[in-house]
Write a protein that binds this DNA or RNA. Structure first.
Length: 156
DNA sequence: GCCAACGTTGGC
DNA sequence: GCCAACGTTGGC
């Protein structure tokens, strides 16, 4: 089992939006970066856990925990001309973009980006690396354990 | 709104 | 295949 961090703009889909979805599950649509797509396609497995991260907002940080709830499958928005994620170069017989489904495990207190940066234990965390722009990054088990136990105060 | 950093595009 | 120009991300 692997751990992940997935960025979402709360204006688009916040942790509370996720909680309000049927089954508390949402398709992680809109990924238009090949590295992030490949991680979903090749590395993610149903049952993996992910930090749900709020980005591009007044208080960036981890807002909850989610579970990968499906394998990767074609992202419907790429074929929707009304969608801002529409990709006219993608063909239904050979879809370019994929998404997984993500299900809420629990909302947590907001662990801010500043807190993450301040922890020496997280110095090598991928999402904190200089210039990182990937919206989906792997999280080491030790980093996961540190954040959930020491910052979120969840039982091990 | 600024801007650093990185990804993508497209001419050659 | 190179690489300059352009677009996007995302914190501040």
């Amino acid at each position: 089992m692997r751990y992940w961090l997935m960025k979402s703009e709360p204006d688009d889909c916040s942790i509370d939006d996720l909680a309000a979805m049927p089954n508390q599950t949402v398709a992680w649509y809109g990924v238009r970066n090949y590295q992030a797509r490949n991680l979903m396609r090749d590395q993610m497995k149903v049952g993996d856990l992910a930090f749900f991260y709020h980005s591009s907002c007044p208080e960036p940080g981890i807002a909850g925990i989610a579970r990968i709830a499906s394998d990767a499958y074609p992202d419907a928005t790429q074929f929707d001309p009304q969608s801002r994620f529409h990709d006219p170069r993608s063909r239904p017989e050979e879809p370019r973009w994929l998404n997984v489904d993500v299900q809420l495990v629990q909302k947590t207190r907001l662990v801010s980006l500043a807190e993450l940066r301040a922890a020496p234990e997280l110095a090598n965390m991928r999402v904190l690396a200089r210039g990182n722009r990937l919206s989906i990054t792997p999280v080491d088990p030790a980093e996961w354990a540190f954040i959930t136990r020491e910052l979120m105060h969840l039982p091990a």
